[in-house]
Design a binder for these strands. Structure first.
Lengths: 245, 245
DNA sequence: CGCCCAGTTGAAGAATTTCAAACGATGTGG
DNA sequence: CCACATCGTTTGAAATTCTTCAACTGGGCG
């Protein structure tokens, strides 16, 4: 819609800041690299004009070329089964890196779509691999990144496996809260980038159940919602909810 | 209990065959490495006498030192929540590699236990990382390995998220079948290394529901079971089950 | 103004869990 | 050798939770 964010074809190397100056560098790939190494990483990062909601970053089956770091905005990723049903596998907020399913088979098993106007850094994977051989710290960060995704997926699996609708929704909201807090944003007040349907799909529930659960959490005074805007009133009790059952 | 884990100070390099001769080399880390590189990998692999059922490989919170490749037998891994409830995160058969949750935080988030008498190769992670810098193919395989774990976890999540008990059990059995077939073993007749309770926990169901589902699959003639021994009578129909709903 | 979409709410239905009992194989002690 | 306890598993019936189907609401936009 608005193209006010698109930059003219000026200096190509550094139109949207760089890794060294990015305030996400403490949670993203540059983590604990030397300034010198960050510059080398910087050189292979492709920064782009902001993408608008709905833009596809990649689709299931696409050849795998790059992973994507979110600078601002939000993405969702999903897989599609043989009947065409979609299963959302993750939401990616600033500092997160999407596309780590790619190296498995040299192609994406997920599709990735922009949920809100977003800035995304594209990291060509073969260059990352090459650089990783020369910069041990980067190699380590890459492996750590993948491993964290594994651990996160396992936590998610626990959630889907043995907990009630209320527990799932509470845990989901807490996860969102934590990820906002990570960027020095309010832990108790934020706007969800995804629809109720997306949340339901992600949590393995129906849209209606999610809606009812939101309502119930409001009635009991833990929460206050206005559409996608969330205000967590009692963070501690919500935290209890997320662990009960 | 048993301190059989300590290796005798005999020839340390090659007591139980080696990667080059291991028939799992086509699915394990050596995949598509040169003979020379396989030897270098070989040099850091610690092979051990078979471990008996119940042996713990590592526990949640243990410092992360190594990943473990299964040569023979089976492992299970699980996480424990703050209430002490366990959630099984995976079963590892020959050719699988456990412990990839470790790099995330330099400690294991899972515990790993031997389900049947098993042979396991211990791969010290810091040596793997070092070798990875020198052997690009190994680095690539490592990253691919982690990525595959991510994709597999995502498939698992789909299963837990939006499918009936019957679908979950059918998909579980098919997964087991495929993994047996991978090693040129029978796809239709095998012995499960884990209990019904373990299956239930893994699939996010109760023990009773799993048992009932097994019974139902038998009544409808897709399956024949005797305790842990499974005979898949109609693989195709079972495959349909795993995708229906 | 009225349509459309995302979200909410209600009531009936279906599936799984829970509680309970019983089974069969295995192992132990009298 | 048999009685008995134990463990993993199976089966039954009631209770609970979530889904399904359906109607309704309210804001945004042509």
């Amino acid at each position: 819609m608005h193209s006010r964010l698109s930059t003219p074809s000026s200096k190509p190397s550094c139109p949207y800041s760089n890794c060294g100056r990015c305030r996400l560098s403490t949670v993203c790939l540059p983590l604990s690299l030397s300034l010198d190494d960050i510059h080398r990483l910087d050189a292979i990062v492709q920064r782009r004009p902001p993408l608008q909601s709905g833009t596809m970053l990649y689709r299931t089956g696409d050849p795998f070329n790059a992973i994507y770091a979110v600078r601002a905005g939000a993405l969702k990723t999903w897989t599609t089964d043989i009947h065409g049903r979609e299963q959302i596998t993750g939401f990616y907020l600033p500092g997160d890196i999407a596309g780590l399913d790619g190296p498995a088979n040299h192609q994406h098993s997920n599709s990735a779509q922009v949920l809100q106007t977003s800035s995304v850094c594209k990291l060509p994977y073969h260059l990352l691999e090459q650089l990783g051989s020369k910069v041990p710290g980067l190699q380590r960060n890459l492996l750590q990144l993948l491993s964290r995704e594994i651990v996160h997926d396992q936590q998610q699996r626990r959630l889907l496996s043995r907990s009630s609708a209320q527990t799932r929704v509470a845990a989901f909201l807490l996860d969102m809260s934590n990820r906002h807090q990570r960027h020095n944003l309010s832990a108790t007040e934020f706007t969800l980038p995804m629809s109720r349907g997306d949340i339901a799909n992600f949590l393995g529930l129906t849209l209606e159940t999610v809606s009812r659960t939101f309502s119930h959490l409001q009635k009991t005074g833990l929460l206050s919602t206005a559409g996608k805007h969330i205000h967590i009133i009692d963070l501690e009790q919500l935290s209890d909810c997320a662990q009960t059952d």
